[in-house]
Nucleic acid binder design. Structure first.
Lengths: 224, 224
DNA sequence: ATCAACCTTTCAGAAACCTTTCAACAGCTC
DNA sequence: GAGCTGTTGAAAGGTTTCTGAAAGGTTGAT
């Protein structure tokens, strides 16, 4: 799960990065509007944490510009201002949730979890499909109660697909998201992992369908 | 259990370090705000002891700056001031407990224990898993009533794992938390201790599972 | 038929982890 | 101090698992 933190207070940023990383999120931080632009062009994120109360960056403008791109990324606003107006404005501009400073870490994590759930996976902190249950917190997949042994890449792939269950995910996108650092994987590598994953989950009532020319999508297995 | 003592009176600091070390805590001391910053960036602590009554350091500011980073570390305030206002202010700023000087050493230890319990271990002062019982006060582990003979490192490792029973703890984190002073242990060292610990506890209905690429987790042994 | 997209198998190299061995060291006893 | 005992972690080598390139087969569209 890849989060982008937009925060220009280095100290707070540092603490949040540290904590959230410990909770199992892949974290990236941007301290300026330009950095945000670049990162959004170059990478995909699952969620954006945006601090509005920044002295040298207009958060709302940034928010609008993110939304203008029609990126389907949930955005969680952090702000020192707690005026209702700001709140409303933020939400009108496309924020998905709102948290006023000072906030409890625990609450932040809860909101993040909540957003992920709402945007990607129904209402549980797990996403279920067929006989599979992905636990987005523990980063493991259960098949009928048993932990499904998956390698890091396989798990990553399954996570991405499940988060968009029923929707097509392009090969490029997968290659992008699975990469550890910068370089994307080759198309062939994706094919290999799709293949391996199919073998692992074939008995779980879930299947990965190929949509020629577009990508893959995961769905409950048809009684075909 | 790793404590950070923030205290600039060298004599008092020294005495506390000594006493608490004797009680089985790993102690680190910082005498200035800068030192605190650096230590918090570099290491993880389980608890912070912060002396507010410092002549050349504003403790409350420090407290606020620690809390601003949203680090989930319990903080115990020590202070010469006993005004109720200070107390309230301290707690509002994010302290988890409060102790006025002069205090009994015994009381300090009790408070530390209490905080640790509240923050990490539910309500008991022992943590049980399978046939093991960790006594967080006595710093010993019982296996079916018998004291399990463990070296310091082995005990430290087991303690960290048990405090997070069922969750994966990364090797880095273990390396970090086990270190006495500053340098983290090598990965190999962790592997060695996991190995040794496994041998010691294998007959206790508890097992340490390897989660490739992520770390280790301790759990009640499967009836496989 | 032809071509691009996709599937599948194989395999070597890499990475992560396990295990043993051993030297350095600390604490203890006599 | 000398000798003993237990602890610690570096070193080295072994094992397992993961990873993705390569190569060839299959499928579907035109």
């Amino acid at each position: 799960m890849k989060l982008l933190l937009i925060e220009d207070d280095a100290i707070l940023a540092d603490g949040l990065m540290h904590t959230l990383r410990n909770s199992g999120y892949k974290m990236t931080c941007a301290g300026s509007g330009k950095a945000v632009e670049q990162l959004l062009l170059a990478q995909d994120f699952d969620l954006i944490l945006l601090d509005l109360g920044l002295p040298d960056m207009d958060g709302l403008t940034l928010l609008r510009s993110i939304r203008r791109r029609k990126l389907p990324i949930p955005i969680l606003i952090l702000t020192a201002r707690d005026g209702i107006n700001d709140r409303i404005e933020g939400i009108e501009q496309g924020a998905d949730d709102y948290l006023s400073k000072p906030f409890e870490l625990r609450e932040l994590e809860a909101r993040i979890q909540g957003l992920i759930r709402r945007c990607y996976g129904g209402f549980a902190s797990t996403i279920a499909l067929g006989g599979l249950v992905l636990d987005t917190q523990q980063h493991q997949v259960l098949a009928e109660g048993q932990i499904l042994p998956l390698s890091a890449r396989e798990l990553g792939l399954l996570e991405i697909l499940l988060l968009q269950a029923g929707k097509v995910v392009s090969k490029d996108r997968l290659a992008q998201r699975l990469a550890q650092d910068d370089e994307a994987l080759s198309d062939n590598a994706i094919e290999i992992y799709v293949h391996r994953l199919r073998k692992r989950i074939e008995s779980c009532g879930v299947s990965i369908r190929t949509v020629r020319g577009l990508g893959y999508l995961i769905e409950a297995a048809d009684a075909t």
